[in-house]
């Protein structure tokens, strides 16, 4: 077990700056996701932590010890790859045993550790088989078992579920959470899938354009995104951004009034689609509904508020026709206010 300190890591590929100074502290036993769109630098950061890539500048400390310049094997970590990288010419048993064999562990210890990891991932029936005969999900279990068998201080996972089909992904996600909670290993998990990050993580670091935009618990990041990018990237549908005029430190929405952290000019309201309640028109914000989609569990409305595109969610019991105007009231405790110029949000009111 170990904590990880990432200290102002920069990485350039020629003229392209992949990481523009990233700092992050991960506590012992914590599960942190690096979440961001493809090309944002999250995988590069993971590979720098692993030692598969060198950083241009900055420091990585694992368990208080700087690991820059150390070989991957001397960093006390294990890794699970996106395409599993389970060795096809070795049985499942030898795959799981690989790290221990490299450490020259004796056969008794290898056997004990392999059986323990295989038990945790439910792959005991396949130990004598070759990976070729296994499904994607089973191969991924082998890859995780191989990583856990060496009892690493740090576990790195690079989009481990993205090659699985949707149903299996959901199943493996739940199982990963159980297994990793049991193992208690410090984990860094790279993903572009916000539901995965939300479901698995103790904390999420949202990476965008070579920088970390926000670090927080899933609920914090969801409810109070630090920037417009975070709000737009997390949540389905994404957060709505509605520019509104400010007069005397107040924003008026129909009969509702909100004190905002600006005196005049304009401010951007960050509105989660499911935080609104239906009301008669004129009570709060009115929405011109272009399309109403009954999703079974809820009703999804797409249209515009104050002439700006918006998506909101109402209970499935509501009925709305295409083209109808509906009134919505806002919950003052669940609003985010952002600066229209910088796109950065104001701190949440206490």
């Amino acid at each position: 077990m170990a904590n990880i300190v990432i200290d102002n890591i920069k990485k350039s590929f020629g003229a392209f700056q992949a990481l523009k100074g990233v700092s992050l502290t991960i506590n012992d036993g914590e599960f942190v996701s690096l979440l961001g769109p493809s090309g944002c630098g999250k995988t590069t950061l993971l590979r720098i932590i692993a030692g598969l890539e060198t950083s241009t500048s900055g420091d990585v400390r694992i368990g208080e010890k700087s690991v820059i310049g150390l070989l991957p094997k001397d960093r006390g970590l294990a890794m699970v790859f996106q395409n599993y990288a389970v060795f096809p010419h070795m049985t499942v048993y030898e795959n799981v045993a690989f790290g221990l064999r490299m450490q020259k562990a004796d056969d008794a210890r290898v056997k004990k550790q392999v059986e323990k990891a295989a038990g945790l991932l439910h792959i005991e029936p396949y130990l004598d088989r070759y990976p070729n005969k296994l499904s994607g999900g089973q191969r991924q279990r082998v890859a995780v078992a191989r990583a856990l068998a060496v009892e690493p201080g740090v576990l790195l996972m690079d989009e481990p579920l993205s090659n699985l089909d949707a149903l299996l992904r959901l199943e493996m996600r739940t199982e990963l959470k159980t297994v990793l909670q049991e193992a208690g290993t410090t984990t860094i998990y790279v993903t572009h899938d916000q539901t995965e990050a939300m479901g698995l993580s103790d904390r999420i670091a949202v990476v965008h354009d070579g920088r970390i935009e926000q670090v927080g618990t899933p609920v914090e990041v969801y409810n109070h995104p630090a920037t417009r990018f975070v709000g737009g990237f997390i949540g389905n549908p994404p957060m709505n951004f509605i520019t509104m005029p400010v007069t005397g430190g107040q924003v008026t929405a129909g009969a509702q009034q909100f004190a905002v952290p600006a005196q005049g000019g304009e401010i951007v309201l960050g509105l989660r689609g499911e935080t609104v309640e239906r009301a008669p028109t004129g009570q709060g914000l009115d929405m011109q509904v272009r399309v109403a989609e009954p999703m079974g569990s809820h009703l999804l409305l797409t249209g515009s508020i104050l002439g700006q595109p918006a998506r909101v969610i109402l209970p499935a019991t509501e009925t709305v026709k295409n083209g109808e105007t509906v009134g919505l009231t806002l919950d003052p405790k669940r609003l985010t206010w952002l600066s229209p110029e910088s796109g950065v949000s104001y701190p949440a009111a206490a």
Binding site: A50, K73, M79, F81, A85, G99, M102
Partner: peptide
């Protein structure tokens, strides 16, 4: 041979010769 195989081996402590 995908490079992930060699990287995985490297992570788990295999020397270049191994």
């Amino acid at each position: 041979v995908p490079k992930e195989f060699k990287e995985a081996a490297e992570i788990f402590g295999a020397s270049p010769w191994t």
